[in-house]
Design a protein around this nucleic acid. Sequence first.
DNA 1: ATCCTAACTTGGACTTTGTCCAAGTCAATA
DNA 2: TATTGACTTGGACAAAGTCCAAGTTAGGAT
Lengths: 143, 143
Amino acid sequence: MSDLLERLRGRGWRLTSQRRVVAEVLDGEHVHLTADEVHARAAAHLPEISRATVYNTLGELVALGEVLEVATDGRAKRYDPNAHRAHQHLVCSGCGAIRDVHPHGDPLTALPAAERFGFAVTAAEVTYRGLCPDCRPRPADRP
Amino acid sequence: MSDLLERLRGRGWRLTSQRRVVAEVLDGEHVHLTADEVHARAAAHLPEISRATVYNTLGELVALGEVLEVATDGRAKRYDPNAHRAHQHLVCSGCGAIRDVHPHGDPLTALPAAERFGFAVTAAEVTYRGLCPDCRPRPADRP
DNA sequence: ATCCTAACTTGGACTTTGTCCAAGTCAATA
DNA sequence: TATTGACTTGGACAAAGTCCAAGTTAGGAT
């Protein structure tokens, strides 16, 4: 993730320890943390970091296009560092687990012009829902 | 919308004036009100109605499958009475206007088995985003 | 190396959205 | 028309996020 830090410095960011730990926390595949979770993990490395700074930094990363904001439920927003490859989300209705998924085709093409109401449509976000293997009811054991 | 009230009575609902007013507010096409907006409109007809009752009633309507909950932004949930015909949402990135739209095909089929991670996938919600005619930049007037 | 300063961080107050509860009210049945 | 369990109410509470004045600091200038 130091490439991210490089990119950010290139964009005129001041490299503070707070921003560094937030960027480090947001590393990896299938990462979809809430702001509070980011704060908790960041605070494990840098105990004095404030909630306000975490919110500020997340907002900046989103504005720069380095992190995506996902609202898969009506609760807290989640932050997804996988911003450089188009993808959608698969959410478990039982436990809330989230995976990045790659459907084929562009979901935008499914919306015919007649259904666009004159909008200039530029993006489509898809949330697939279902039960993950752990939450799925198992076939009962046979005697 | 009296058919809705009939259906609800059939399901053992007590028909109170509060529930009636909430059901009336949630009538029509392309209706996507927040709980607070529902409360404001309901209060115009029934000034003493409380926020708690609006939340309760909306929750019940959602549980009964008569109203859909939509979270198109990270803000307040919206309530969509068009629950009996499958549809998706088109949201203006400028002003937040929401339209019900009907893409062709089933979005679920775009997700290959290899991308399902063992989930039993049952639904797909699509949010299309773009600028509505009013928010879209116009070509500059020629002199 | 150290100074300077705009940029950044902090804690706490505040807002928005939503939930919970004890006490009071009322729709529908008998 | 009396009864009662379901419904409603207002206010306290909680979660998620924003805002701000005051203090700190990264990094260029000296």
